[in-house]
């Protein structure tokens, strides 16, 4: 397997996008500093949400072009799969590190709370620079970013593999199910309490059901990552060039 070259290509592909992203984040931060000077009682938080969206979109954009480029250069789907998974960790790690450092810097300059602190801050002593909070926040971010990037990647392979009909069906069916059908079911079958149960389950896997435990989402992300890796492998192994 030509993993080294394949990995280098995938990371190079993400480098420019990451550079642009953090230029935007720092520009936004400068804007927030100015805003805070004008409105001292205001505050900001959770720029990591933007990172989650960014890395998810990066995942969405990372299959088709790389797949074609690799097949053109006689690189197998196995190598594509392995290098894609491996490339997620340095990207997610770099972003988690940047965001952890940024959270510390931002909180010193403006009123700022990281996304992790917003969710799990209640479980810590009230000191933003507490090492445990930063370390667990970093771990939380790296796991969350990895899972979201892989989710985007899997969705992109799924759409690549599907024909027009199934693509439309999934694009309409999935949001239709969650936004229309599920509330209708919930309203008509009050005994089941389906939405409440889903919400409880989400709180549980995020470690927010009984107190605040950041290791729950870390484990959840790990499980999601393994499941998505399996799906990604199955979808990649039979993917073919489409003209």
């Amino acid at each position: 397997m030509n993993i080294k070259a394949a990995l280098k290509y995938q990371l190079h592909d993400a480098k420019r996008a990451l550079m642009v992203y953090y230029i935007v984040i720092y520009s936004l931060f400068i804007f927030l500093v100015i805003m805070q000077k004008m409105f001292p009682e205001g505050g900001s938080s959770g720029m990591e949400n933007a990172s989650i969206i960014f890395i998810f979109i990066a995942g969405l954009n990372s299959f088709k072009q790389t797949f074609k480029m690799f097949l053109q250069n006689s690189i197998s789907r196995k190598t594509l799969f392995v290098s894609s998974l491996l490339s997620i960790f340095p990207i997610a790690g770099f972003m988690a590190l940047m965001d952890s450092i940024n959270a510390v810097i931002f909180s010193k300059i403006i009123t700022y709370e990281s996304f992790f602190e917003q969710l799990y801050g209640g479980g810590y002593a009230t000191n933003t620079n507490d090492f445990r909070l930063i370390a667990e926040g970093f771990l939380f971010s790296i796991c969350m970013y990895s899972a979201f990037m892989l989710l985007g990647y899997v969705i992109s392979i799924l759409y690549y593999r599907m024909n027009k009909g199934p693509k439309v069906a999934v694009s309409l069916g999935v949001p239709g199910f969650f936004l229309v059908l599920l509330p209708i079911i919930d309203t008509n079958l009050k005994d089941i309490n389906i939405l409440k149960n889903i919400w409880d389950f989400i709180l549980f896997i995020l470690g927010m059901k009984n107190g605040f435990n950041p290791y729950y989402p870390i484990v959840t992300c790990g499980i999601v990552f393994v499941l998505l890796s399996g799906i990604s492998f199955l979808l990649t192994r039979k993917a073919v060039i489409k003209n």
């Binding site: 397997m1 074609k68 480029m69 053109q72 006689s74 690189i75 197998s76 196995k78 192994r237 003209n243």
Partner: peptide, 17 residues
């Protein structure tokens, strides 16, 4: 799916990949 074997073959495709 054999990188070793595929490394010996190069296809200049009519399409651009």
């Amino acid at each position: 799916e054999n990188d070793h074997a595929l490394k010996n073959v190069f296809l200049m495709s009519e399409k651009n990949y």
